[in-house]
Amino acid sequence: MKIIKLLMAVVVIALLFSNCEYNFIVPVEVPPIDPGDTTKVSFSEEIIPIFNDGNYCTSCHAGNIPPDLTPDNAYAEINNAKYINKETPEESLIYTYPHPDTDTHQRKKYNSAQAAKILRWIEQGAMNN
């Protein structure tokens, strides 16, 4: 009887672990930023699509759950000290909260390229351009 019990335990564990793989997620390539490049990141053309394309953020953040990230409201909603820290851009909540390396936002996160673009936009003054 004890052997049957042990066998059952081994079978349960073996079934659960029969498909171990060792894959790595390929990160999105972040284009290197040229320090001399003064091209401004466009809020309307580059930041708004991060929030809205495929309802990526706006499936939740469309009015009921702050911040409202719909195109008409996003800038007014995040252009304040709660979400944007112009003194220390990398501490801005709109950058850190869904950052791929933090676990503060569980469901969806920026990818590395999107996070880099948000940071650059804040570093350039977080303008409504």
């Binding site: 793989e21 060792y22 894959n23 790595f24 997620i25 390929v26 990160p27 999105v28 390539e29 495929g54 990526y56 791929p100 969806k108 996160k109 990818n111 590395s112």
Partner: peptide
């Protein structure tokens, strides 16, 4: 699209 590029490699 929640997994960066959405692709994997079996080893580094």
């Amino acid at each position: 699209d929640s997994f960066e590029s959405g692709t994997v490699i079996p080893g580094k």
